[in-house]
């Protein structure tokens, strides 16, 4: 029936939008505040999935009940946050150099991380559907939709609220926005820009890692997932405006919906469709929907 199908496209769109937002928001935050385009950001996402798989398997092997897997997901995300801080440390010596060096460095990191995943966890996909099955399904208009996917959508929204709250109502967040606006002045006024950068990278990596961790129960962890997600994240932040979290949110919704429809109706051109959108937006409105300043 037509209305039901539309609802499922819509829900699928929200589902894609949610985990893509988690990746894209981190990317745009790091870009907006540090002015670094983190080409290794996809690796945070993929490591999130793999680390979550690892911890989940650990829990299950030790007889912990399925709901504890929620903890596994969040623990994975926290660990990825630390990974992000580590990446930021290795970037510190490069800030005073040409921006291209930072791009090249994060690009190299993405190569290293991609192969590390293959080295540690092999070439085959890792699955852990326990949580997905455990949550069952909800009945929507006579059809069933996975509750876990609803959970992911919920986390996506909550994350947006959290990020908004963080940047507008906490001290660190406000300082971060000040630094994004004027680094020299903030530093002159006594802001510890260096430690702020580390914290921001933690946050950006945390959310990307969370996105990957959340995906694990629904789909799987597979080599190459990082670069796919990064490609979408690029499109999202361009549509939304580089550095804008609100833009990342709206952009994720747009890309999520396009993807839901694309996968359902025209599976082969899905990738091409996304990049066509990227090119069109860059040409028509390069500053995206919500401009360049971090907001």
């Amino acid at each position: 029936m037509i209305p039901t199908t539309l609802i499922f496209y819509f829900l699928n769109g929200l589902f894609y939008a949610s985990y893509l937002f988690l990746v894209a928001s981190g990317l745009t935050i790091i870009l907006g505040i540090l002015n670094v385009l983190n080409l290794a950001h996809g690796s945070f996402y993929s490591f999130g999935a793999y680390v979550a798989a690892f911890i989940a398997t650990l829990f299950l092997n030790n007889g912990l009940p399925t709901p504890s897997l929620f903890m596994a997901l969040f623990m994975a995300a926290l660990l990825i946050g630390l990974m992000g801080s580590g990446v930021e440390f290795s970037l510190k010596p490069l800030y005073k150099r040409r921006q291209e060096y930072q791009l090249l460095f994060t690009f190299a990191l993405s190569f290293i991380f991609e192969d590390l995943i293959k080295l540690i966890w092999g070439f085959n996909p890792w699955t852990c559907p326990n949580l997905f099955a455990y949550m069952g399904a909800v009945n929507i208009l006579g059809q069933f939709y996975p509750s876990y996917d609803m959970f992911v959508i919920f986390i996506g929204f909550v994350s947006y609220l959290f990020i908004w709250f963080f940047f507008y109502h906490t001290r660190t967040g406000n300082l971060a926005r000040a630094v994004a606006f004027d680094k020299e002045m903030s530093s002159a006024l006594g802001v510890n820009v260096s430690s702020l950068y580390t914290k921001i990278f933690f946050i950006g990596a945390f959310f990307a890692g969370l996105g990957g961790a959340l995906i694990l129960p629904a789909i799987n962890a597979i080599p190459g997932m990082g670069s796919d997600a990064l490609g979408f994240a690029f499109v999202i932040i361009v549509i939304g405006g580089l550095g804008s979290v609100k833009g990342a949110f709206v952009g994720s919704l747009i890309v999520g919906m396009v993807r839901a429809v694309g996968i359902a109706l025209f599976p082969e051109i899905e990738l091409g469709l996304i990049f066509t959108v990227l090119v069109i937006v860059l040409i028509l409105k390069p500053q995206g929907l919500f401009g360049k300043r971090f907001e």
Binding site: R97, Y101, F105, F107, A108, L109, I112, F113, D115, L116
Partner: peptide, 19 residues
């Protein structure tokens, strides 16, 4: 077979030491 890993490490070394 981990060619990307080696390439990545080489780039990192170059960026740090031989810009």
């Amino acid at each position: 077979i981990y060619w990307q890993l080696i390439a990545g490490i080489v780039i990192v070394v170059i960026v740090y030491l031989f810009p």
